[in-house]
Design a protein around this nucleic acid. Structure first.
Length: 457
RNA sequence: GAGAAUGUAGCUCAGUUGGUUAGAGCGCUGGUUUGUGGUACCAGAGGUCGCGGGUUCGAGACCCGUCUUUCUCCCCA
């Protein structure tokens, strides 16, 4: 035990059947993305620190994995900053590169850098790992995959409508039994802050309101007070907790509440457009819910905000997203609106494992295994195997002359679908025994009929 | 980054107030069966008790440090 090797915390190895399930997951997501016209891109695993730092708030910066400078670059270390106890500055002088923290910010950088080669509106999807120096917990890893789709260069709300459909399509296809797409709009949150006269504290305010389902009304009010919101503001926030009913009813209540806020009314209008369009089309399995407490920490969102939760499972959100009007502005390209979503593949995997939702076909094993009887028989098996492979059938010849019992057990453990037994007798009569491993049935077949027979199975 | 729990065989876990040689089930290997797996029976292998230090005549158990995993907070997929 002591000498056993280990991998860093929050990382995982994947065994063959896990990889099979994960590929199924990625392929399902990819298929839907493609269906809606998104094209794949890839970006490097690591970026310049300056690209990532400061884009995710102070909390986010703390969680970015930084790559230590090597060789002569070490001399750039800012010892004065160290002496002055300015650790962030010291760290920056030691690490010019960092592992990507999400796919959205690198994508913004990508768009700015390749703006002349892209056609706008540009729709891309991207499935790659990201890294966070977070403390690992259930459903929380240091290395995990994000599956993002974004549209950049269009401020049409049809994009939002499309993304709601994509959430619904993917998760329905994956057979997640019940899930809720929560939607809100940053402009509504701004409107609330404005109505309360606390526009400056919008972040503190929304972060507190976001915790409603966790700490309850009382908890939220306490936190708001601690964060220094005025008592008149808190009085104005209180009625929000009472808002309930259907999405349209809630919109109606908010319309009255936000009547004095121009930005708030704009948010209502946007949200209503999306909800109406979705209502007209209907969703397969998802529940679309206007949740005015939904905030999300990333402060680059400016319009719609999405979050998806699987119901009846203990797991944080499995998807997220939203609109960001000025993300590329951070890299010098103004006036380009973007909106995007992200599937948390690792969490969806955990949910599907917990609910046993992977179809059995995903982990189906090798189609044919030829058992090994002896040198003469193996020569024939090699010829037959080659011919199967020409017909795109996966097969394998057991590599050594172990006891047949052991070879059968190997076939069983590998979940092999069919086993071919070809021994002395069969060799003489130019036949073979084909055994179906799941039913246990077996039949004698001519060499000539073998290819056709196996292709039909 | 703050607080708490956890770690014993490949896996899931027992192990009394500190006391001889640390156990079980499953899995693994071999056999019953040298041409038949998933069942049954028999036998066997496998552990410096997470790691490092300390207390003690004696530590899997107590103390300190450290790492892992898990939980709460923070934040998030």
């Amino acid at each position: 035990m002591a000498q056993k090797p280990a991998i860093p915390k929050g990382t995982r190895d994947f065994l063959p059947n896990e990889v099979a399930k994960r590929s199924y997951l990625f392929e399902s997501i990819k298929t839907v993305f493609k269906r809606y016209g998104f094209a794949p891109i890839e970006t490097p695993s690591f970026e310049l620190s300056s690209t990532l730092m400061g884009k995710y708030g102070d909390e986010g910066d703390r969680l970015i994995f930084r790559i230590l400078n090597s060789g002569e670059k070490m001399r750039k270390a800012d010892l004065e900053a160290l002496a002055a106890d300015n650790l962030p500055k010291f760290a920056s002088s030691l690490a010019e590169k960092a592992l990507r923290y999400d796919l959205t910010v690198p994508f913004a950088r990508f768009v700015v850098q390749h703006q002349n080669e892209l056609n706008f509106p540009f729709k891309r999807y991207q499935i790659q790992p990201v890294w966070r120096a977070d403390r690992p917990q259930h459903g929380r890893y240091q290395e995990f995959f994000q599956c993002d789709a974004d549209v950049v260069g269009s401020d049409s709300l049809l994009c939002e409508v499309e993304f709601v459909q994509i959430f619904d399509d993917v998760l329905t296809h994956l057979n997640i039994p019940s899930f809720t797409i929560k939607i809100n709009n940053r402009k509504i949150l701004s409107g609330i802050a404005e109505v309360c006269g606390e526009s400056d504290r919008i972040v503190e305010m929304t972060v507190a309101i976001d915790k409603l389902d966790k700490i309850g009304e009382e908890g939220v009010l306490n936190e708001l007070e601690q964060k220094g919101l005025s008592s008149t503001a808190i009085e104005k926030i209180k009625p929000l907790f009472q808002f309930s009913g259907s999405n349209l009813e809630k919109l109606q209540l908010m319309r009255t509440y936000l009547a004095q806020s121009e930005v708030g009314m704009k948010g209502i209008e946007e949200l209503e457009y999306v909800i109406n369009n979705i209502d007209n089309m209907g969703l397969k399995r998802a529940d679309l819910e206007f949740d005015l407490t939904l905030a999300r920490g990333l402060n680059y969102y400016t319009g719609a905000i999405f979050e998806v939760k699987a119901n009846n499972v203990n797991m944080g959100s499995i998807c997220g997203g939203g609109r960001y009007d000025d993300l590329t502005g951070l890299f010098g390209l103004k006036g380009l609106s973007g909106v995007g979503i992200s599937f948390g593949a690792d969490r969806i995997y955990d949910v599907m494992t917990e609910l046993d939702l992977f179809p059995s076909s995903v982990t189906k094993g090798l189609k044919v295994l030829f058992l090994h009887f002896g040198e003469a028989e193996v020569a024939k098996c090699l010829t037959l195997a080659r011919s199967l492979r020409e017909n795109n059938i996966d097969c394998e010849v057991y590599p050594s002359g172990a006891k047949i019992q052991k070879q059968m057990k190997y076939a069983n453990d590998r979940a092999v679908q069919y086993v071919v037994l070809l021994g002395e007798e069969e060799l003489k009569s130019e036949t073979l025994i084909l055994k179906n491993m799941s039913t246990g049935e077996q039949e004698v077949i001519d060499y000539k009929a073998f290819n056709t027979k196996i292709t039909e199975l």
